[in-house]
Amino acid sequence: MLGYFVRRLIMLLPVFLAMSAIVFLIVHLVPGDPIDHMLQIGASAERRQELAAKFGLDRPLVVQYALWLKAALTGDLGEAIILKQPVVDLILANLPYSLALGLSALLFSTVVGVSVGAAAAYFAGSWFDRVVMAGILMGSMLPSFWLGLLMILIFAVELGLFPVSGARSWDALVLPVLTVGIGGVALIARVTRAAFVEVAQQDFVTLLHAKGLTRRRIFFRHLVRHALMPVVTILGLKVGWILGGAVTVEYVFARPGLGSLLITSLGQRDYPVVQGCLLMLGMGVMLGTLVGDLAQAAMDPRVRDRMS
């Protein structure tokens, strides 16, 4: 188990290198550069060069990349060109907002998704199953900016229950969490329902029925444990979604977060910030996948055996 974990960690290193190279290249491919934002319209070419030299942007890309990578390996993501602060500080300042939104949305969609999925599986084939699953599907398929605006209209404007936007008090979190979470609810409910239905058809369940256990007892005592496996895997894969997938929702609700930091900086071509955010997100997802796999291993001896 430990050996497996260490091996997986070592395998992350080449991934990190490849990711950093691609992130760096992609960011520099975007037309325009941060100097445009520091100059008054119509500034002279000399002035441009002077500034480019100041931020090392006049060096060959390979050199810029090597310098950035070297610093990044020691945890230093450089200094923002436009925002004039260490990138690490900027990320740390925004991370709590992303985590608050992402984790609450994850919690919300897991709790609601598993409950609804399990209920639908319990009543599989009934009208309840169909109506609930179709309703959730429909909700999750609406574009989130649209859903967000609708939520604001209903809950903030008409009912006055929550603030329209911002992140100044905790109740400002509720509407964004609902907006982000509903997509997760549908996904998790579907996975849960399918897992329950499938496990229910397996031999051991038939055996339990034969032994005379009630349906309710089988459901809660035996099915739940088996059916939650795929849910855990899905959750591991959702780390990127927690950290950066809420860009649209952050925009609609004018919330701080890694997504908005990334979009603002992309707009201003603040290279170090964009690179830092993308690298963070990418590595976060890789680690999330790893943790998801390990959690699955811990729960399922069959997977554990395969790993050793």
Binding site: I152, V252, A254
Partner: peptide, 18 residues
């Protein structure tokens, strides 16, 4: 002084007293 990128959000904040 808050910065609100989306016009309609800003408008609703004013309407609701935010």
């Amino acid at each position: 002084v808050r910065e609100i990128p989306e016009d309609s959000t800003a408008f609703l904040e004013l309407q609701t007293g935010g």
